[in-house]
Amino acid sequence: MKLKIPQYQLSEVLNMMAFKGISEADIKTMMDLGILREHYYRYNSTIFKAGEITEELGIVIKGRVIVENVDYWGSKSILSSALPGKVFGETYALSGHKLMIDARATEPTIVFLLNAQDIMSGKYNSYPWHLQMLKNLLLLSSRRSLTLSLHIFYIKPKKIRERVSYYLSGLASSLGTTEFDIPFNREQFADYLNVDRTALSKELSNMQSEGLIEFKKNHFKLLELDHEELT
């Protein structure tokens, strides 16, 4: 069976935050130098594995990557879902710390792997793109800190409805719209919120019956938010 490898245009890549201020020629130069490389991953392929050390961070070009936290006993919980333009593994690539996460493709996926240690080493200071890439890495690192802080905020409430409401409200605010797709299927959404899948499905149905939301699979529309209930 012939593999269906996702296709992309380099112009799409240039619009991604990781390559802000970077030209097509700059990307080709980084690839020639081995700092940046393209890799295709099949469904459920592991990209990063807990316990390993990586100097590279991943940038999703096409497809989707799930990032999971793995504890000592092998239990996993979803930390984030990376869609095209999103970055994963940057904290470990920048710090040199052993990975405490697994990253895997949840569909056929193209990833650019960027060697963060090479960018920070200074040996490419003479290249015109070097300073801009350093700025981009700093911005990406700060955004990762925000993402992790938001996840803690979302799962802090005890009630499932509060966790759902906080997450959907936060996503609506960041996207600037009350109708959107979440980057999870139902099982992944339950895992991300650290709740039981059946209990989550029941609560979503209750919220829909009460006229708070409409949803179909991973598509949601916020109809009303009872802020008094969230306090």
Score class of each variant (00 low, 15 high):
53 I>Y: 11
172 A>Y: 03
79 L>T: 01
34 G>V: 01
149 S>H: 07
186 R>S: 06
31 M>C: 01
113 L>P: 02
63 G>R: 01
177 T>Q: 06
45 S>P: 04
209 S>V: 09
115 N>P: 00
229 E>N: 10
145 S>P: 01
131 L>E: 13
94 L>S: 07
149 S>I: 02
116 A>V: 14
155 I>S: 00
9 Q>I: 09
149 S>D: 13
38 E>F: 01
87 V>Q: 07
112 F>K: 01
109 T>F: 05
96 G>A: 14
102 D>N: 15
61 I>D: 02
231 T>S: 12
122 G>Q: 11
21 G>A: 05
152 I>M: 12
117 Q>W: 04
43 Y>H: 10
105 A>I: 04
136 N>R: 06
210 E>Q: 12
169 S>M: 09
185 N>H: 05
92 Y>F: 14
118 D>H: 08
186 R>D: 13
162 E>L: 14
117 Q>T: 11
154 Y>Q: 00
50 A>Y: 10
69 N>Q: 12
225 L>H: 04
140 L>K: 03
76 K>T: 12
184 F>H: 06
112 F>C: 00
134 L>H: 04
120 M>E: 08
191 D>Q: 10
100 M>N: 15
36 L>P: 02
98 K>V: 13
226 D>Y: 13
197 R>G: 00
4 K>C: 11
65 V>Y: 04
27 I>A: 03
55 E>Y: 02
182 I>R: 06
159 K>Q: 15
107 E>W: 04
131 L>D: 11
13 V>F: 12
202 K>W: 03
66 I>G: 00
6 P>M: 11
224 E>S: 12
83 L>P: 00
180 F>P: 04
104 R>F: 10
1 M>H: 10
217 K>S: 13
6 P>R: 13
163 R>C: 03
21 G>M: 00
70 V>W: 00
46 T>D: 14
179 E>D: 05
221 K>A: 02
52 E>K: 13
58 G>T: 11
26 D>K: 08
164 V>D: 03
101 I>H: 05
225 L>K: 10
189 F>G: 00
85 G>Y: 10
172 A>F: 05
177 T>D: 05
125 N>V: 04
98 K>M: 14
189 F>H: 08
229 E>I: 06
138 L>R: 05
53 I>V: 14
126 S>C: 00
59 I>L: 15
102 D>V: 05
47 I>H: 05
28 K>M: 13
177 T>I: 03
220 F>Y: 13
47 I>Y: 03
63 G>C: 08
138 L>N: 07
83 L>S: 15
54 T>F: 00
126 S>L: 13
33 L>P: 07
72 Y>H: 14
90 E>W: 03
161 R>Y: 06
10 L>G: 10
185 N>I: 04
40 Y>G: 08
134 L>D: 07
68 E>D: 09
40 Y>N: 11
12 E>Q: 15
61 I>M: 03
223 L>Y: 08
74 G>P: 00
98 K>T: 10
165 S>T: 08
138 L>G: 09
115 N>L: 05
195 V>L: 01
77 S>M: 12
17 M>S: 15
97 H>W: 14
222 L>A: 08
137 L>F: 02
155 I>W: 03
102 D>M: 05
91 T>S: 12
36 L>E: 02
46 T>G: 07
116 A>Y: 01
79 L>D: 02
198 T>F: 09
123 K>S: 07
178 T>W: 06
47 I>G: 04
